[in-house]
């Protein structure tokens, strides 16, 4: 029992990231509201961010800033830099998605996917 718990805890970040990925993807796929889809997409991407950040962190490591004389263990900064880029991309994606939703709302009067489809078929 405790062994299983230990295993779970040792990979806590990974589990959390996986959970976020799954929740996000589920929301994207199942929800019909376009804004909720975007929120789901954000949750999904957050899962990836968490995954990258955990990857670079070393337990007991400090921020990777060189201090003279200190014999410190540094966390790997590269994944964090990478994910910063990914976060920026995510912000851009979100804003573009929202802009599109605004346009859809203006021309269809709704943000529900089903209504949009029904309105086109009518």
């Amino acid at each position: 029992m405790s062994e299983a718990l230990a295993f779970l805890m040792a990979h806590a970040n990974t589990w959390a990231a996986t959970a976020l990925l799954c929740i996000g993807l589920w929301v994207v796929m199942v929800r019909g509201n376009l804004i909720k889809k975007v929120i789901g997409l954000n949750i999904f991407q957050t899962g990836v961010f968490l995954f990258y950040i955990s990857m670079g962190y070393i337990i007991g490591g400090t921020a990777p800033i060189v201090e003279e004389g200190a014999d410190a263990v540094y966390s790997n900064p590269l994944p964090h830099v990478l994910i910063l880029t990914a976060i920026v991309v995510s912000v851009a994606t979100t804003s573009l998605a929202l802009a599109l939703i605004v346009r859809i709302r203006e021309s269809y009067g709704t943000t529900e996917e089903d209504d949009v489809i029904a309105s086109d078929e009518a």
């Binding site: 990925l21 993807l25 994207v28 376009l34 889809k37 975007v38 997409l41 999904f44 991407q45 990836v48 995954f51 990258y52 990857m55 994944p79 990914a86 994606t93 573009l96 998605a97 599109l100 939703i101 346009r103 859809i104 021309s107 269809y108 996917e113 949009v116 086109d120």
Partner: peptide
């Protein structure tokens, strides 16, 4: 065009994020 672009955005972003996970 807007719903089409939106759908592409959702699916494309999911696809790109998959690649990101793989690279990670």
């Amino acid at each position: 065009a807007a719903p089409a672009a939106f759908n592409y955005l959702i699916q494309g972003t999911v696809g790109a994020t998959f690649i990101l996970i793989g690279i990670g």
